[in-house]
Amino acid sequence: MTRTALIVDDSSSVRQMVAYTLRQAGFAILEGCDGADALEKLGEQRVNLIITDLNMPVMDGIEFIRRLRAKPNARYTPVLMLTTESQMEKKQQGKSAGATGWIVKPFHPDRLLEVVAKVVP
């Protein structure tokens, strides 16, 4: 069965790069340009993986994860933050919000897939 990943980033080029990488691993892709857009696109749909940026207009990554975790069907979905931000304080906020892991951009496609393989069995 095809696995689905939701990619949330305000940069279309980053969404494109992450989507290309995940498609190599057989994922179908959903995209959102910010947290609010992603929540709307997700609706009641279940996905196998979410990769989100931190700093985005309208709704940032932390708020997105908080709202996502409030949804019963997304409580245990692996959520990876993919951001240029590497400060401990921000990481802690992400962890508290319910992120599964933190990856600092730029990402390397093969390494990203290795991390994905760890969080999506």
Binding site: T100, V104, H108, R111
Partner: peptide, 14 residues
């Protein structure tokens, strides 16, 4: 910016 050695990436799983 954006120049990484092959395979280098900062990752932390919670």
């Amino acid at each position: 910016a954006g120049e990484l050695e092959a395979g280098e990436m900062e990752v932390e799983l919670f």
